[in-house]
Design a protein around this nucleic acid. Sequence first.
DNA 1: GTTATCACG
DNA 2: ACGTACGTGATAACT
Length: 881
Amino acid sequence: MDKLVLIDGNSIAFRAFFALPLLQNKKGTYTNAVYGFTMMLMKVLDEEKPSHVLVAFDAGKTTFRHRDYKEYKGKRDKTPGEFSEQIPLIKELLDAFGIRHFELDQYEADDIIGTLSRQAEEKGFSVTIVTGDKDLLQLVSDNVQLLMTKKGVTDADRYDLQKLKEKYGLKPEQIIDLKGLMGDPSDNIPGIPGVGEKTALKLLKQFETVEGVLENTDNLPGKKLKERVAANRRDAILSKELATILCDVPLDFGLDDLKYEGFEAERVAPLLKKLEFKSLLERIGADESPHDTTGLEAISVEMIGPEETSQWEDFLRQEALALFVERSDENYHRAEVLAVTLSDGKQRLFMDWETAKGWKAFRDWLQDGKREKWCYDVKATRVVLERHGLESKGYTFDVLLASYLIHPSESGHELSDIMERKRGGGLPEDDAVYGKGAKRRQLEGKELAEHLARKTEAIYQLKPELERELEENNLDSLFRDLELPVAHVLARMEMQGVKVDRDRLREIGEELEERLQELTEKIHGLAGTEFNINSPKQLGEILFDKLNLPVLKKTKTGYSTSADVLEKLAPQHEIVGEILHYRQVGKLISTYVEGLLKEIDDSTGKIHTRFHQAITATGRLSSSDPNLQNIPVRLEEGRRLRQVFIPSEEDWLILSADYSQIELRVLAHLSGDENLLEAFRKDMDIHTKTAMDVFGVSEDEVTSLMRRQAKAVNFGIVYGISDYGLSQNLNIPRKEAGEFIRRYFDSYPGVKTYMDEVVRKAKKDGYVTTMLHRRRYLPEIHSRNYNRRSFAERTAMNTPIQGSAADIIKKAMVQMEERLEREEMRARLLLQVHDELIFETPKEEVELLSKRVRQVMEGPVELSVPLKVDVNTGKTWYEAK
DNA sequence: GTTATCACG
DNA sequence: ACGTACGTGATAACT
């Protein structure tokens, strides 16, 4: 017979939370509720042997019961954060167990359980409900039993019709009447004052129902009781209604969806390991991690040379292979290829580079788009192969990108990190194998082959697991249709590189050196002594000890000499302004002149940055070696550095296309705020418009100060506003900043509603999402620490905005490359700087390119406001402004 | 290796 | 009362 187990998730978790001491794992995550819940879950699975299982959770704050009775659950203490933050973990664990969990807006877990237990009964199931809540006893019947937790966590009483009769002398439906009479202080349900369990049971024995009691008010024993019942008739009825569990909730799934066929230890184990539940790991027979290292530790690998390749051509005819290309340098633009390894999950093939490159069948395989390649870091793999003469395509999976989408906030996405997370280990870190720093050595022969075989095997084994997680988290389209294509676009951009005018760069460097020299002398003169201006410590001593300037801010280690402090001190002493200027010039020389010169490729005169696609928590790219996303622009002195970025061919131009206010437009779309929508539909100057609204003036009354302040408010909104942050930015009192914010939200009420909603959803789900489903988890949204919690709340507000903008420009990049190719244009995409794309193009194509870029960038998603793109061209990046 | 500072969106 | 604006990377100084 089919057996359905329905678990009251919140109730069991809550019971566990209070029954167990507040456990924490090494990372500081609270785990006691998860632990207790899992114990209970495993016991129930073990003993009930269900064919179907569902865990129901309470949804958000309000339910339909609040409509009828505002005070419902009104007197409850706030749920402790230590508890709430464990709920997402429990859900994650249920996913690993392959058990469905569900919650429904406006309803409680009870109602979901009630509905399903009735449905199951009709279909001839036997049903067991697991809860700590007496209310659910009303659902007991011939085929429905209830396990009610007792003192401990896993201790439970089993209630069937007979037990209910024995214990209370009641029929199930009378549980509702019981509560109608006695009420429930924990839910703030009134009942009849002075009537407790004893009296209520006595009355029900005699009169059956609340209605029965009310009809017979005159016959009740005791004068006090009569009076009380008479005075609280309405409360009794209301209380009964509130206690009634709904059994006809609309559900968009059926019993068939709740099938449970047992769990797989290897899916559950990594999570238990992360939670540090050693006894539970043992219990599922996986205390030695599951697929575990044994598969990778004692690995076999075929090392082949040019003579053996012919025997392995069949190996290459398989549908999919894991491919790993080891290189000599993290920076693949200047790395040599050391070796290539392949795996089909059964055998590993190792070749040195000469063998791989000389093997025709392998080269054909690389170029065959129909032969699937699973890899780690498709961009690095493709670029390093291509730089050494081998084209490759057919990459259908990238373990790095998948891991990033699933865990966007994790800092480590090395293969060993991913194995650690997914399998609890199994692959040693590169640093441990090769050594690091001075100790680094190159492995050879079998040692190298086995290490690379392990990596390749790890890719092969991780692929299906990560693929499943992508699907489960609704990330598969983002992965396949966006991130994977973006990786190829970036590969081409990086290989193309940007031409640099080395002479002009040196020239600018010399000018700056001269200026720095003058500034140094002037500062030393004003200080009356020579010192290292670059040392915050020495500088602090001069400013605050010698010159006795006031100390406005301190760092952990001493005086703060940051720019915002110095700006405030500038009026007090001539030296301060000079120091600020010195810092500026010094930065330009060391980071930009010297830094960029070091990165120019000697033979081509180009710079090949690397774009990182798996770093930021929001979905943006980052750039390094060198970072070309932070070339100076705000101050003219630095901006001139953009003169050194030039087209790589004679008579070509640089074209820059940037989104106008993309983040605020995204906000307008996401929030649906009428005022903001209208502003963009009319294409108004958004900061002026904000100034008009916040300061209550007409357009021609907006002063430049007002516009500047309004601009800061807009930034603040995007970042997740706080009065403190805005006050720092504008250098005004916090109260004043708070007043700006209040007036902003008065003018844009839709934005306020949206921000509140995002934070509420983040608290409920544990994560926020962008327009293309990118996720970011925010565990600290439940922190009791004000700072951590506030940070998480601001992040919840900022990430959908910043992240959706990142989604949009990535989509535009992919479409733009397709367009350039399809129309056989010669123009090339070179750089992306978050809201701007930079191309080089033949002069003759400028008109066409401008048109296409606009078309494509304005079109990747349909927003409720237009996307606007500004295009500029020039002989250098500087001129394309 | 960490801290302070500052360049960008 | 609390006390940070969101997201990055590079450099120099110092531990």
